[in-house]
Simulated scan of single mutants.
Amino acid sequence: MDLRIFVEPQQGNTYAQQLGVARAAEEGGFDAFFRSDHYARIGGGDPGVGPTDSWVTLAGLARETTRIRLGTMLTSATFRYPGPLAISVAQVDEMSGGRVELGLGAGWYEAEHKAYAIPFPPLAERFDRLAEQLEIITGLWTATETFGFEGRYYSVTDSPALPKPVQSPRPPVIVGGFGPVRTPRLAARFADEYNAAFQPVAQAARLFDGTRRSCEEIGRDPGSLIRSVALTVCCGRDDAEVARRAATIGREVPDLKENGVAGTPAEIVARIGEYAEIGANRLYLQLLDMDDLDQIALLAAEVLPQV
């Protein structure tokens, strides 16, 4: 099981805090550092310094880390045009020496769109735009000469399809979501990984089954698609430390144990095993207290070697 660290900087965290987490995750041996792509705080509370742009941040981290993979969970297709996004990701891939992954979704948080003058079309249109963006971005990255595409929302004419990413044939693409039809089909067609974020074991199993069926429908080997989950983490050496960390992020321990990955290292290893049994290859540990680098060290020392 690959373990990755996943953070939510829109909740009020600076670039310096993100750098600290990324370096701690790299030093601890985690596979990747991922961040959300949001422009407004979700829920109440102090917004702090305000949002940081995901791809500007990852460009900086690309030059300040050496091994750890970097990506988004998930970039919203409503935020950027597909051509400039393909260029940005390819550039950060080059800056990192080929360590970038693109998680791309339809977008869902209407408030941040209103706050920053970003159009927020209806759900069906957002999915249509997502499909076209996946077609264009992967096409631009893999085209050997020029690339063209004619869609309902985006069209590309005689693009030189440059710059190229370092990774060949392209950086890994992640598709996530809970839709029973369109999401698994998009994952089967375009993605290297499907993510079921914050889902209980039974529901994640059903979603994974949907991606297997979608792969089979188009003649793709279902085993070629990585399946992952993202869950809030709260790890402590004993019950008191778990309770202290839960209180810091405003959560209750029973809720975290039921809907996240919480407890002592032994409890967390057992919880991870439940997801492994349904076919998860990868787990994103959502770290909500980005100043708690000791928790990353604890997970690295006592959980990572056991999974």
Rank of each mutant, 00 (worst) to 15 (best):
D2P: 04
R4T: 13
R4Q: 13
F6H: 14
N13H: 15
Y15R: 12
A16E: 15
Q17K: 12
L19S: 10
G20F: 06
G20W: 05
V21L: 12
R23H: 07
R23A: 08
E27M: 03
G29A: 07
F30V: 09
D31K: 07
F34V: 11
F34D: 10
H38L: 09
R41Y: 07
G43Y: 00
G44E: 05
G45L: 02
P47E: 05
T52F: 02
D53F: 04
A59E: 02
A59P: 01
A59L: 06
L61Y: 02
R63L: 14
R63W: 12
E64Y: 07
I68T: 03
I68L: 03
L70A: 03
M73C: 12
A77C: 00
T78C: 14
F79L: 00
R80Y: 12
P82A: 03
P84H: 11
A86W: 05
I87F: 08
S88R: 01
A90N: 02
A90D: 03
Q91V: 11
V92Y: 02
D93W: 10
M95H: 15
S96V: 06
R99V: 13
R99N: 09
R99L: 13
L102N: 07
A106I: 02
A106P: 12
G107F: 01
Y109L: 09
E110V: 13
E112T: 04
A117W: 13
P121G: 08
P122S: 06
R129H: 05
R129E: 08
R129P: 06
L130T: 00
A131S: 08
E132T: 09
Q133F: 02
L134R: 07
L140V: 13
W141P: 00
T142K: 04
A143E: 08
T144M: 06
E145H: 05
E145C: 03
F147Q: 09
E150T: 14
P160R: 06
L162C: 12
L162F: 14
L162I: 13
V166C: 06
V166A: 15
R170F: 12
R170V: 11
P171M: 09
P172W: 05
I174S: 09
G177Y: 00
F190L: 03
D192W: 08
E193T: 11
A197D: 05
Q203C: 01
Q203K: 09
R206I: 10
R206T: 13
R206K: 14
L207M: 14
G210V: 11
R212I: 12
R213D: 15
S214V: 06
C215R: 08
E216W: 07
G219T: 05
R220K: 10
D221C: 07
D221E: 07
G223Q: 12
S224F: 02
S224V: 02
S224M: 00
S224D: 04
L225N: 09
L225K: 10
I226D: 08
S228G: 11
T232P: 10
C235Y: 00
C235K: 03
G236W: 02
D239N: 10
A243G: 00
A243R: 05
A243T: 08
A243S: 02
R244K: 14
A246T: 11
G250Y: 01
E258R: 15
N259W: 12
V261W: 14
A262S: 15
E267P: 10
V269C: 12
G273L: 00
G273F: 00
I278C: 08
N281R: 09
N281V: 09
L283A: 10
L283N: 06
Y284S: 15
D294I: 04
Q295R: 04
I296S: 04
V303D: 05
P305G: 02
P305M: 00
Q306T: 08
V307L: 10
